[in-house]
Every structure is written in C-alpha cells, then in structure tokens.
Design a protein around this nucleic acid. Sequence first.
DNA 1: TCTGGTGTGCTATACATATATAACACTAGA
DNA 2: TCTAGTGTTATATATGTATAGCACACCAGA
Lengths: 126, 126
Amino acid sequence: MEFRIEIDEKSGVPYYRQIMEQVKFAMARGHLQPGDRLPTVRQLAVDLAINPNTVIRAYRQMEIEGVLETQQGSGTYVGRHQPKIDRLEKQRMLDQILTDLLARASAYGYSVEEVLEGLRQRKEES
Amino acid sequence: MEFRIEIDEKSGVPYYRQIMEQVKFAMARGHLQPGDRLPTVRQLAVDLAINPNTVIRAYRQMEIEGVLETQQGSGTYVGRHQPKIDRLEKQRMLDQILTDLLARASAYGYSVEEVLEGLRQRKEES
DNA sequence: TCTGGTGTGCTATACATATATAACACTAGA
DNA sequence: TCTAGTGTTATATATGTATAGCACACCAGA
C-alpha cells in the first residue's frame, strides 16, 4: 500500500488536521480503499513522533464524519462512505502549499522564477 | 497597488501566519517593493475583520525577521535592506524548501507536474 | 499648539492544540 | 483462559492563538 502520512511541523496546521487531510486525500485518490486498515494509533504516533492522543483525535473526528470505522480492540478501518473532495478543495490545498512555499522562499530572497527553475531541475534529476 | 490579503478561516492556518505568508509572497512576485507602505494595523484589522493585535503580531514577527520596518506614528514599510544571506546557505535553503514542498505535495497526492503547473500559474498572475 | 492617525505596550480572558501519564475495555489468537 | 495488541477515557500541564480593552508614545498636518 502506497500510503504514507507526513507531518509538516512548520506549516502551522494542527497535526490532527494534517492527518485528517492526508487520509481523506488518500481515500479520494484510491490509495485507501473501503475496508483498508489504517495504522494503529500507537504505531502512527511512533512513526510521526507525536502523542497518541493526537492520532486518536484525528481518527475519532473522521469516525464522527463517517469516513472511518473503528473497532475497539481490532483497529481502525476505511469506511464505505468516501469523503467528497471536490476540485475546489484540491485546488485550495495546493494553493495553501504553494503559498507557504513561496513565503519561505521569498524570505531568503528567491523569486517565483527561481523557485520554478529549481523545481524544474529537481524534476529532470528524477 | 495590487496587493490584497485574504484570510482563509477554514484552512487551520493561524491568521497571523497567513498574513505573513501573503506579504512575503507579494514581495516575491514584486507586488510589494522595498519602501512600499503596508496597510495600517487598524485598517487591515478592519478589512480582515480580525483583532488588531493579530495584525501587530504578524508585522512584528516580520520586523524581527528583517523584512519589514516600522516607524511609529508613520506606518509599516517593506524593508529597503533585505537581510544578506550567504550564497551557499541560500542555495542550501532552497534545496531544503523544495524537499519539504515535494514531501508535503506527495503526501497529498500531488505530482511534480501539478506543482509545477500551479507555480506557473502563480508566475503568470504576477 | 492642537488634533487625528499611527505604532506600542500591557492585562485579562477564552479557547485550541499537543504533550505526558495512567488506567480501562475490547478483540483475536495461542 | 491467558496474553498481546487494539482503541478509549481521564487527568494534568504547557503552549499557542485570538479576542477585548485600555493607556501611552510618536508623527504629520492644520
């Protein structure tokens, strides 16, 4: 399963929200299918180096929303009701990421063009 | 001056950070030039319908970083003396920023191409 | 000089976020 | 039945975020 969560500590976005967003995006992309088992609370907490309560908060919130189903003693699973992530929301998230990127870059004197060029080189290398 | 700030209440990103990001982004794309006067603390607070202290926090943080200069009684301005940064460190920082970006983008399922396209659009807008 | 607009400083309050720690309840498998 | 692993709950603590309100200091212009 190509499903990995990463926490950006510098983004200012609460950890539990980052977890929720990435799980939902993975579901929308099909990387997480209904019935799939999510990482355990404890394991994900260790992987992300955060407190288990923070993972619980993200999972529980998504269960309330109906996108996840938890079975105490067994695990947390992807529910049948897929979250709706429309084009607008995807665009908004990309905008947010790009704004954050450009803000950091400009703090070091980079222009949009320079960032663009740097990214092109990255792409070529891979 | 085509410089406008908007607050996304749903994003989870603190208001003062959104202000900082957008000011820096406007600088990067040239919409804000050194010496330009920023909106007053009170005016921006009214426009964004937030508390003046939140605006102050954003401005003060950027002054500490050296990107803004405040003149009490007069206003807040884009700094004329942008911080000098060692070229090597600058290059290293761009690498770091790009790495962070790509990690975050991939966590949300965006491809390098999508990120590139988003950046191109940003460039066109400026 | 006076006045209005500006940034600054401070206190207080409320809420959100994340942590640490410990216990509890349920499930699956040996 | 026992055990390990799972999600759950609770308490306490620290920090971050945003608000409200007030007083003060500085500057430019009338």
